[in-house]
Amino acid sequence: MSVLTPVRGSGRIYAVNPVAKLAASLLLSLFLLVTVDWVSALVALALESVLFVWAGLGPRAFFRRTAAIWIAAPLAGVTTVLYGLPSGTAYFEFGLIHVTEGSVQLALASALRILAIGLPAVVLFATIDPTDLADGLAQVVKLPSRFVLGALAALRLVGLFLDDWRQLELARRARGIGDTGRLRRFLNQAFALLVLSLRRGSKLATAMEARGFGGSTVRTWARPSRFGARDWMLVLIGLAIGAVALGASIATGSVNFVLG
Rank of each mutant, 00 (worst) to 15 (best):
K203E: 12
L168M: 14
A121K: 04
T131S: 09
R172E: 07
S145K: 03
G181N: 13
L115C: 13
L160A: 14
S103A: 12
P130V: 11
L137C: 04
A171T: 11
A109P: 08
D129W: 07
L115P: 08
I117N: 06
G178R: 08
A134M: 11
A109L: 06
V123C: 07
S197R: 05
A151I: 09
L149D: 12
G102P: 11
R200E: 04
A154K: 03
D132Y: 00
L155W: 02
F147N: 03
W165V: 09
R182P: 05
V141A: 15
L115H: 02
A134G: 11
Q167P: 03
L198R: 04
F213L: 12
R113A: 08
R172W: 01
D129C: 04
A174C: 13
V123N: 04
F147W: 05
R166N: 07
F186P: 00
A171R: 14
D132W: 00
N188V: 10
I177V: 15
A154S: 13
S202P: 02
A190H: 11
G159R: 09
G159F: 02
L119H: 03
A192G: 04
F213C: 05
S110K: 12
V141P: 06
L162H: 12
S197Q: 03
F191N: 14
A171E: 08
A205E: 04
D179A: 14
R113W: 00
F191K: 13
A126M: 10
A126R: 08
V140I: 15
R199Q: 14
K203T: 13
L149M: 15
F186A: 14
R173I: 10
L196R: 13
D132C: 00
V104R: 13
F161P: 01
V141C: 09
L157E: 12
Q105Y: 10
L193I: 12
R173C: 05
R166D: 07
A111R: 08
V195N: 04
A171F: 10
L115I: 03
L193C: 09
R175Q: 15
V123D: 01
I177Y: 02
L194P: 02
A153C: 06
L198P: 06
G150E: 00
L133P: 00
L143F: 09
R113N: 14
D132M: 01
R175C: 06
R185F: 14
F213Q: 07
G176R: 04
S110Y: 05
R184D: 14
G212I: 09
L198Q: 04
R211A: 06
G102M: 01
L119R: 06
Q105H: 11
D129K: 04
D135A: 15
P144A: 12
A121P: 10
Q105K: 14
T100A: 07
Q139S: 05
Q167C: 07
E101Y: 02
L143M: 15
L187T: 13
L143Y: 00
A210E: 03
R182A: 15
G181D: 10
E169Y: 10
S103Y: 00
K142R: 15
L133G: 05
L187G: 01
I114K: 04
T180I: 09
L168Y: 11
I117H: 03
L194D: 07
M208K: 09
E169R: 15
G215S: 15
V123L: 12
S103V: 05
S145Q: 09
L112C: 06
L124W: 13
L160M: 14
R184E: 15
A107E: 02
R113E: 09
V141N: 02
G212H: 04
